[in-house]
Simulated assay, not measured.
Amino acid sequence: MSVWQRVAKPTTRRGKRVLLKREPQVVEGPKRALFFQGRKCSEKVRALLKDLHDFKKPDGVKLNRKHDITVFENAKPVEDVCRKYEAPLFMLGSHSKKRPDNLVIGRMFNYNLLDMIELYVESFTGLKEFAESITLGTKPCLVFNGPLWEQTDELKQLKSLFIDFFHRETVENIRLQGLEHTLSFNATPDGKILLRSYKIILKKSGVKTPRVELDEIGPRVDFTLRRSKLPDEDLMKEACRKPKELRVIKKQNISTDELGNTHGRVHMGKQNIKTIQTRKMKGLKKTAAERKAEKLKILKVVNNNEAVAENGDR
């Protein structure tokens, strides 16, 4: 059975720009995230979705109406919604007797489900409970505390999901005063994930480097891991494939040290130093007086050698 799919062709310049923007880019910008509710949602999870959406602005879309979706049983409705709003990331809040205060974080690859993790919202304190706030669209500094993030596959994928959710534009350099917001993720041995949000305050310290203080601004959330759907190895490899333009070609005999200095090694063939002509500049040539003195010196040596030879014959 063959499936025929119509390929949209632009008829206007504006339509061409829209289609070019939808195509895969060499350097991807911030990923768009979709926040929505399931068939039932508790007030706690609804407030958490709103606060996380505020952090994701302007790269987030929040849907107010509820959706009859159970993503672990059937992922097709979620894929359709994400394709409709062009969002490769999604966050679904739900509530049931079996799984109360439930939050599902997932992402798409080519609008097909790649992976997702289900979390239980154990405790939550919203932004309204804190006095401080941050500027809209601020790029956060992500901190993952504890060695557990690299010990299990579920935590590795959850760390990757959090990075994708809160990652913004890729920058080469950053100004110290530009660090205004930090998100701290702490994985505890009892299976909890603690999310804390702080505002970075730079104060005078008497030296060039300022004194850094952290002021908690919320939200404050305690998660517990539930179900998870990890990606297939081949699909994850395809999703992480880099384009040819970004692949680093290793150059031979060139290395970089820890300080960022570049060192090169040059290979040269064997040289006969005795036959190298070094006096090629006019300023380095011998003068007439020097040539005359050199000739006299040679004649004197020759005369001394002849005199020694005559004395030996006698």
Score class of each variant (00 low, 15 high):
Ile217Gln: 03
Asp215Glu: 14
Ala187Met: 06
Leu195Thr: 03
Thr224His: 07
Arg220Glu: 12
Tyr198Met: 01
Glu213Ile: 02
Ser197Leu: 02
Lys192Ile: 05
Phe223Tyr: 13
Gly218Trp: 03
Val212Asp: 04
Ile201Cys: 07
Pro210Ala: 13
Arg196Cys: 06
Leu225Val: 12
Val221Tyr: 04
Ile201Thr: 06
Pro231Val: 10
Lys192Tyr: 07
Pro210Arg: 10
Ile193Lys: 02
Asp222Trp: 09
Leu194Gly: 04
Asp232Gln: 15
Ser205Ala: 14
Ala187Thr: 04
Tyr198Asp: 01
Leu214Tyr: 12
Glu213His: 02
Gly191Val: 10
Leu183Ala: 10
Ile217Ser: 02
Lys208Pro: 01
Asp222Thr: 15
Ala187Ile: 04
Pro231Glu: 09
Tyr198Asn: 00
Asp215Pro: 00
Leu214Met: 12
Asn186Phe: 08
Leu202Lys: 04
Arg220Gln: 14
Ser205Lys: 08
Ile217Lys: 02
Val207Gly: 07
Ala187Gln: 00
Glu216His: 12
Arg220Ile: 13
Lys204Thr: 12
Lys192Asp: 04
Val212His: 04
Arg196Met: 12
Gly206Asn: 09
Ala187Pro: 00
Lys208Cys: 07
Leu194His: 07
Tyr198Pro: 00
Leu194Ala: 06
Lys203Ala: 13
Leu225Ala: 07
Leu214Lys: 07
Leu202Gly: 00
Asn186Arg: 10
Ile201Tyr: 03
Leu230His: 08
Pro210Ile: 07
Lys204Pro: 05
Leu214Cys: 08
Ile217Phe: 08
Arg220Asn: 13
Phe185Asp: 00
Asp190Leu: 09
Arg196Phe: 06
Arg196Asp: 11
Leu214Gly: 04
Lys204Asp: 15
Ile200Arg: 01
Gly218Asn: 05
Asp222Tyr: 05
Ile217Leu: 12
Glu213Asn: 03
Pro219Lys: 04
Ile201Gly: 01
Ser184Ile: 14
Ile193Glu: 01
Pro210Gln: 09
Tyr198Cys: 00
Ile193Tyr: 02
Leu214Gln: 11
Lys229Phe: 14
Ser184Phe: 14
Glu213Val: 02
Ile200Tyr: 00
Asp222Ser: 13
Phe223Met: 10
Lys203Glu: 10
Gly218Val: 09
Asn186Cys: 13
Phe223Glu: 02
Val221Lys: 03
Leu214His: 11
Arg196Leu: 12
Arg196Glu: 13
Leu214Ile: 08
Asn186Pro: 03
Leu225Arg: 05
Ser184Gln: 14
Gly218Thr: 08
Ile217Cys: 07
Ser205Asn: 12
Ser197Asn: 08
Lys203Gln: 12
Asp232Ser: 14
Arg211Thr: 09
Val207Ile: 15
Asp232Phe: 15
Ile193Ala: 05
Ser205Ile: 12
Gly218Asp: 06
Gly191Ala: 08
Ile201Arg: 05
Gly191Trp: 14
Ile201Leu: 09
Ser184Tyr: 13
Glu213Met: 05
Lys208Glu: 11
Phe185Asn: 00
Arg211Pro: 01
Lys208Val: 13
Ala187Cys: 11
Thr224Tyr: 09
Leu230Val: 05
Val221Trp: 04
Arg220Ala: 12
Pro189Ser: 11
Arg226Phe: 15
Tyr198Phe: 15
Gly206Phe: 08
Pro231Tyr: 13
Thr188Trp: 01
Leu183Cys: 07
Ile200Cys: 01
Thr209Ile: 15
Lys229Ala: 10
Asp232Met: 15
Arg220Asp: 11
Arg196Lys: 14
Glu216Phe: 06
